[in-house]
Design a protein around this nucleic acid. Structure first.
Length: 539
DNA sequence: ACATTCAGCGCC
DNA sequence: AGGGCGCTGAATGT
């Protein structure tokens, strides 16, 4: 079916009005339209920026049957690089795409003015119509170009079979939004505030740190306590989470870490409350990361602390379910590498516990063992692993080196697999997941250098992980439209489902998680569980 | 005064 | 000396 082409206006600037759009259709039907009217149609509609469109429909009760094809999403896929540019200046942004289509600078400027509602002066109506007509028409050409680009880069199947259906499923979710329990919110906020007060008091009394947000004072106190490395920025790169780790054996970094955490959490929660309504409508970016993960923003609910997640509640008559892959990425790594030992260890049970026992002598440090294992999956060098192991356990580097070497030495094929992957990157100039989603070698680092292949492993592993979760979302959308994918969480999916069919949907979710994983990774035996997430789930 | 960067955390 | 993100408040830049 021949698609139509739609431009739309950001509704924030047209409060109370219907969402204005400008349509170009091959049959000639076109001009200014009400976007809501288009949602019930069947034919595909090409747009720029699906999350923006969803913003305009947020909270409306409407059944969306149209399939939208977002050209920005297609461009993101073919670019295959991380964005360094500020928001709105990425190569897949509307403005850049229109420039690629040969639209003149002044037309683009006037269009962006219209679509964002940023214009301060009235634009001549006739001129505006000319501009919109010209741009809407050019989308046709842009679609053809991008289609070619998708084909030559091996992303066409990925785009039409995965990204288009997923972006449409998440568009519907963005329009539905989700509900916040203000009673729980108040409780969590209260708890966070008093924790923050306690931490501030201790910092003041025990460490004479009167103002924890004064960076120079913090640096001075850390230096007094022997943490002079904290001032050396050159050492920061490998120091992700260093306050927390150092906090295991010293109260100053521990308290500083807590201060940071509670401060941030408090303002996040305050912002949630400030919406005034019980409903929020976050934006779902279905190509939020280079590896294909879905990223949720405004608010960034995926980053809520686990302790604060209870503020998310189901709508009346519905309940939450949270199916969750256990040891997801190690499982994918096992299948990818074909390492027999890793496959059998994964299939036999927990991978993190044995490491916890080897390093710390007990199961209690599973959390840190997990960090180390995941770091290993992401290609951290042995020295790096030894460093975190040593800091987390408090044992000397020498001891940790032996333990780490012995533990990971069991997985013989992993090294070969890694070398093969790096070789592939050098030869092809790119690394993908299993269905396109390539990331390309940038101009930066020298051949063979570590910086050049840092991301190769995660592109394959994380990329495969996000592909599997997207397959789950697509099948769910088809097989159980009552099951709403509220929060995709990378290795899990928070769903809101009708209370009356919760148990059936729970079984279906379990089956879908398993079968979609098996489809990609037949050599491993995936496990799914539904508890212990911090969300208030049914049961 | 406003914008960008930095440093650090949250999540997976 | 581990990948992918967003967000916050302070620091720095214009």
């Amino acid at each position: 079916m021949r698609p139509s082409y739609l431009l739309f206006r950001n509704p924030v600037h047209e409060l109370g009005q219907e969402l204005a759009g400008f349509l170009h259709a091959p049959e000639g039907r076109g001009g200014f339209v009400n976007v809501v009217d288009l949602c019930g149609e069947s034919g595909p509609i090409v747009v720029l920026g699906l999350p923006d469109l969803a913003d305009g429909l947020s909270g409306k009760t409407l059944s969306i049957t149209t399939t939208f094809v977002d050209l920005c999403l297609a461009k993101r896929l073919v670019v295959g690089q991380k964005h360094q540019a500020r928001a709105g200046a990425e190569p897949w942004s509307q403005g850049k795409l229109l420039a690629q289509a040969g639209i003149s600078e002044s037309y683009i400027e006037q269009y962006l003015c219209w679509t964002t509602g940023a214009c301060t002066e009235e634009v001549d109506a006739a001129l505006l119509q000319t501009v919109l007509q010209s741009i809407a028409t050019s989308l046709q050409k842009l679609l053809r170009e991008l289609d070619d680009e998708l084909r030559t880069k091996g992303e066409r199947e990925r785009f039409f079979d995965i990204e288009v259906p997923v972006s449409n499923a998440m568009l519907r979710q963005q329009v539905r939004g989700l509900s916040i329990d203000h009673v729980r919110l108040e409780g969590v906020l209260e708890h966070t505030s008093s924790s923050l007060a306690r931490v501030r008091r201790q910092l003041r009394m025990r460490f004479n740190l009167t103002n924890p947000s004064d960076r120079s004072m913090v640096r001075a106190r850390l230096a007094e306590a022997g943490f002079d490395k904290a001032t050396n920025r050159a050492l920061r790169e490998g120091d992700k989470g260093w306050l927390e780790l150092s906090g295991l054996r010293h109260d100053l970094p521990r308290l500083l870490h807590e201060h940071q955490t509670f401060t941030r959490d408090k303002s996040t929660l305050l912002k949630l409350g400030a919406f005034g309504s019980t409903e929020v409508f976050p934006r779902y970016n279905t190509q939020g990361t280079i590896t294909g993960r879905i990223v949720i923003t405004e608010p960034s609910l995926q980053n809520l602390r686990r302790e604060s997640r209870e503020v998310i509640s189901p709508r009346p008559g519905r309940v939450l379910l949270y199916p969750d892959f256990s040891q997801y990425e190690p499982g994918i790594l096992a299948d990818e590498s074909g390492d027999e030992q890793l496959i059998s260890d994964y299939n036999r049970g927990d991978l993190y516990e044995p490491l916890s026992i080897a390093l710390f002598g007990d199961r209690a440090h599973r959390k840190h063992a997990k960090t180390i294992f995941i770091a290993f999956c992401n290609g951290m060098t042995e020295e790096g692993l030894v460093e975190i192991a040593s800091r987390a356990s408090g044992r000397p580097n020498e001891e940790c080196r032996d333990i780490v070497a012995q533990f990971f030495g069991k997985y013989m094929r992993l090294r070969d697999w890694t070398e093969d992957l790096f070789g592939e990157l050098e030869n092809q100039g790119r690394v993908g997941s299993r269905l396109g989603n390539y990331r390309y070698l940038g101009a930066g680092a020298a051949p063979g250098s570590r910086a050049r292949n840092r991301w190769a492993i995660s592109q394959r592993i994380q990329g495969t992980a996000s592909l599997i979760l997207k397959r789950v979302i697509i099948r769910l959308d088809k097989e159980a439209p009552d099951c709403w994918p509220v929060l995709p969480m990378h290795d899990a999916l928070l769903c809101e489902v009708p209370k009356s069919s919760a148990s059936e949907i729970r079984s279906l979710l379990g089956e879908l998680f398993i079968s979609c994983f098996r489809e990609e990774c037949p050599s491993v035996d995936p496990r799914v569980h539904f508890e212990g997430s911090g969300f208030v789930v049914d049961g």
